[in-house]
Design a protein around this nucleic acid. Structure first.
Lengths: 270, 270
DNA sequence: TCCATAACTAACCATCTGGTCCAATAGATG
DNA sequence: CATCTATTGGACCAGATGGTTAGTTATGGA
């Protein structure tokens, strides 16, 4: 954390993108082969200029964005280093500034990408045809699962909130990603209420915030929580238990106070 | 965010500690009067060395810690500037390094302070004598209220988790702060189960994480959430609604599936 | 084939930033 | 009084950091 090179932190199975490689110092500026490169596809070892790598603008930008996302998601905005990004992307510094205006511009692009990821994951989950209780269970599970499989999302959102939503406010792309989700939830709630399995008066926004919160906080704060409660929150067992708990809590909330008809306890079955 | 001085962000009623004053640049190194000082008590304008400021070691350390907390809670570890801290504390740089080994050392002290705050707030809330449902409602409300009144806690914890709990792991003070809370919750759950108002099989850790999550996430991510859902989450109305929602959801979870005896719907009454 | 343009590189720069050195002054303590 | 220790002041530093400049090479269209 000081100027001394960071020690390699313990591997985190929830952050597959993170290489955890030590950074800092000048040797990262020069593209030293073998460092930070990981297992590369066996390239024909020959003299220089043999590999037919072309000039690929969008491909390069993708590389840069991926590297930047890894870096921003690992260290936040202020902790991220442009030199580390170019080292990860294995490009020269000027190339980065050729494609992106500044570090901040690059960050905004990564942020938009992050929200796009969330939107895509949401739309991949079919909820419309399902029975209300099943749909809600599905929503809870997929939300949590998305946070598990896309850990960068959490850090990016935390970082953006540390900066008080400065960039989200300026990015018109981000603002309208959740409209469909909101109406989908609304529909599910109405169907559930009509069928008598959900109570009335549920605020869909409040509900979605809660469903997200139950998984998000668990994962984003897992380091301090694991320490405080002396429990490895990211073990597969505990992750599965947490997922069931989120479903349980959400459905209990939605069905509370209803006449004890059939589907009062579906949260227990899993 | 770049080298240009930050614009003063919009005032945040939830972060009373934050001054939001622009930083950066050299004028912060020298204690220029009138900058970053806010309304000072009308001091007798006279020649130098007239004011009777004494040598107060622990008082100065308190000042430094308070300034550091404000700075770290505003910008995170990497975004925080030592020069900004000494400017806030109105001391010389030497004095800071006289009392604290390094920026990181100072950060750890602030972090311990943060956890101490949480512990104190928890212990201030009497839960032991209450009836189980009332105790749980109280726990939900006070947890949320603490996050509202101590906004620095949220950013400090987020920052620490960005750094993967590196410092919490090394600080023995922090590790054992929550043991009493954990057993208190356990007791409440047992009492509730014995009286037939709570169901059995509740994991107190999972429960406490959820109670925290429902308020923490709402507040820590309020900037992006407000943007996405176009709703001012920190308005008094919405804060009150959220608090009720947290209580509602928690009690619904605790009482789900019980025979519809008397206290099945206490969550609605508020 | 030729050339404008865009992809790309290496060296470099201005500034920032955490931290130190070298005094010097003034309360507190015994 | 002597001796710590708190405190200030400010110059100063090495390394880090975001960004730029000057120059090189491949690509694709005319």
């Amino acid at each position: 954390m000081t100027r001394t090179p960071r020690a390699v932190p313990r591997a985190d199975p929830l952050s597959p993108v993170d290489t955890g490689a030590p950074r800092r110092k000048g040797q990262l500026t020069a593209p030293v082969p073998g460092v930070l490169m990981g297992p590369q596809p066996a390239e024909p070892v020959g003299p220089v200029s043999e590999k037919p790598r072309k000039r690929d603008s969008i491909g390069t930008q993708e590389k840069i964005l991926a590297a930047a996302q890894a870096e921003f998601a690992r260290h936040g905005y202020d902790g991220a280093r442009v030199d580390a990004i170019i080292a990860r992307a294995k490009i020269s510094k000027n190339l980065l500034y050729h494609h992106f205006r500044s570090k901040e511009d690059l960050y905004v692009k990564v942020l938009e990408r992050t929200y796009e990821t969330m939107r895509r994951r949401h739309e991949e989950v079919p909820l419309v045809g399902l029975e209300p209780v099943a749909a809600m269970r599905r929503l809870c599970e997929s939300t949590f699962q998305t946070f598990i499989e896309e850990p960068d999302v959490i850090v990016m959102m935390n970082t953006e909130n540390l900066h008080r939503g400065k960039h989200v406010a300026k990015s018109p792309i981000i603002r309208q990603l959740y409209s469909r989700l909101s109406s989908t939830i609304q529909t599910i709630l109405e169907q559930g209420e009509a069928r008598g399995v959900f109570r009335s008066g549920i605020d869909p926004v409040e509900l979605y915030i809660s469903i997200s919160a139950l998984g998000y906080f668990y994962l984003s704060n897992r380091y301090t929580l694991s320490m405080i409660f002396d429990r490895d929150l990211k073990s597969p067992d505990n992750l599965a238990r947490r997922k069931a708990h989120i479903v349980d809590m959400t459905l209990a909330y939605l069905t509370a106070g209803l006449p004890p008809a059939g589907p009062l306890l579906p949260a227990e079955t899993l």
